[in-house]
Design a binder for these strands. Sequence first.
DNA 1: AAACTATTTGGCAATTTAGCCAAATAACCA
DNA 2: TGGTTATTTGGCTAAATTGCCAAATAGTTT
Lengths: 103, 103
Amino acid sequence: MPPRKTVSTKRSAVIKALAHPSRLLIAEALMEGEMCVCDLKDLVGADMSTVSKHLSLMRQAGVLVSDKRGLNIYYRLACDCLGDFLRCLDQLAPKKATTQSCC
Amino acid sequence: MPPRKTVSTKRSAVIKALAHPSRLLIAEALMEGEMCVCDLKDLVGADMSTVSKHLSLMRQAGVLVSDKRGLNIYYRLACDCLGDFLRCLDQLAPKKATTQSCC
DNA sequence: AAACTATTTGGCAATTTAGCCAAATAACCA
DNA sequence: TGGTTATTTGGCTAAATTGCCAAATAGTTT
């Protein structure tokens, strides 16, 4: 595989970890501080096992780090540069503009 | 759907448009300037129809804009804030660190 | 140790996504 | 007009992703 492709494959694994509504919701919530799985389960509104799988996917990708204290496992963002990215996203007009730049 | 979820669903559509190795490769290439479909086909190394479908998905999501000139259709990034995001991604150590933050 | 709580893992069905081929469209040229 | 080039669309199969349930694991409490 050419080097340029290798780089984009690694990067896309990280992006993929954020490219799901529930996972992005989790990332956004964790921008305000760490949370345990049961808190996140309430936020997302899915089965705990589903949330847990989302979390381990995000941890695998390097987006989150976890920390076990007592019975709970707390998750938090591995990097706080995500905020700028989310602000960037909101500038992209969804679907409408076909031939014009947004910014 | 609660408002917080609506927002993250819209945002995740944009992220999804970048969450594929070929599509990210395309986005990275377009950071250096516009390209037509056949240029991108050579870069990605897939069938032109496949590349075309990736491009229309990205345009739908608002990540790219297109511009027809003669026989060619030129694509370029809708927003140049992506560069900062990609730099952020590279700080996230893939997979290794389980309990430590990267930055 | 037994019961309890929080989380993860395995397995499976349903849905979504990817990529190729072939055919359709659109603009250019002779 | 007919031919050629660039791109998109339709259709199909293969592969990946999602989400639930049930069972397993790990730490806590009594």
